[in-house]
Computed example of a mutant assay.
Amino acid sequence: MLTIYLVCLSYLLIAAGPVRCKPDYLYDSEVQGWLKLHVIPATWEQAFLRCHYEGAVLASPLNEELTKALHSTMTKFGINRRIFLGTSLLLSNGDFVSIEGVLLSDQEIQWSPQGPDPGQCLTMAISGSEHYMYTASCDDQLPYICYRNHDNSTLNECGTFDNKYHYNQKTGSCYKVHYEKHTWYRANMICFAEGGHLVILNDDVEASIVKDMFPIRTDNTTNLWEQIHIGLKAWDDRIWFTIHGDKIDDVYNQWAAGQPDNKMGTQNIGTILRTGQLDDANPLKRNMFVCEKAANKIRFESPTLRWNELIVPFGRSTQK
């Protein structure tokens, strides 16, 4: 794990531009796990899914240590409003249960002086050194904290615990195929949550790599128009850009014959076909998709080496 951090640091020192290597999940030794605060409000279900796709769970006050860690995280980032917790009535009619299956009666709960409000989802707020639990509508939009327990998993060469990501030496990127089909927008959200983005095809080599990710059909039938979502989008004037702002002329741009045709005026996102050529599609169409992740982007802070102990501002000496 230390090796990965040093690689990231080395990259920072030699890179011409800024590189975001700082982990977004910070380790707390008291709870033997990682926490991440999401300040952008979401509904309970959206928060649940985001934590899930990040390889964590929506945090609940399962014990005293975890409750203190939630309190500390809210204080550190100045969160002075309620946050969603991972405990709700949604999993069991009439019983508040955490995502891990822990009943409310077995959690570290300190209700507000007014007692529980009507609502199906548990929330938490802090007031100085005190914290209180409330209930709220699960359709409210609130910040939330994701938590991942420290198990026996180790970070792989792609800087993630997700071993479905594989490093490709030809491109220097990591890739993961999602065979379950989603809309383009949901696919992009999932890739972002995993620490990456929808794959961007920079050249013929990368297009060939992704083309080979189509599943092999056992029924001897092949649909040459089967699609994989990629990080390509057309804007109102039908100018195509990657999701990182690259013009289509500067990246892989081998379209299938007659494409893009913007059929029915709704096809404004890019896909790759089994032939390795590009096609346009409706963003609401459900397709397989491929996520791409920079190998130097580390999601989780090392349990043995804090980020702020490793990185010092440029220009400052580490000598006293």
Rank of each mutant, 00 (worst) to 15 (best):
M1E: 01
I4Y: 03
Y5P: 11
L6E: 05
L6V: 03
L12N: 10
L12R: 11
A15E: 08
G17D: 10
P18Y: 00
Y27D: 00
S29Q: 04
L35P: 02
L35A: 01
H38T: 01
V39Q: 14
I40S: 10
P41E: 03
A42D: 06
A47L: 03
A47P: 05
A56G: 06
L62G: 10
K68T: 07
S72W: 04
T75S: 12
N80M: 08
N80K: 13
L85F: 01
T87C: 05
L91K: 14
S92E: 14
G94S: 04
D95N: 14
V102A: 07
V102R: 10
S105T: 06
Q107L: 03
E108K: 13
I109A: 00
W111S: 03
Q114Y: 09
P118I: 02
P118C: 02
I126G: 07
S127W: 11
E130V: 09
T135Y: 02
A136H: 11
L142C: 09
C146E: 07
R148S: 02
N156W: 02
C158I: 05
C158D: 08
G159S: 10
K164L: 13
Y165I: 09
H166G: 12
N168H: 15
K170V: 07
C174V: 02
Y175P: 09
K176E: 03
Y179S: 14
K181I: 05
A187V: 00
N188I: 03
C191T: 02
G195C: 05
H197N: 12
H197W: 12
D203I: 07
V205F: 09
S208N: 15
I209C: 09
V210Q: 08
R217E: 15
T221V: 15
T221Y: 15
Q227F: 10
I228F: 06
I228H: 05
A234N: 05
W235K: 15
D237N: 13
D246M: 04
K247W: 10
K247E: 09
D261S: 06
K263P: 07
G265T: 03
Q267A: 04
N268K: 07
I272Y: 00
G276H: 05
D280N: 04
P283N: 01
R286T: 06
R286P: 08
V290H: 00
A295Y: 08
K297I: 04
E301P: 03
S302F: 00
P303Q: 02
W307Q: 01
F314D: 15
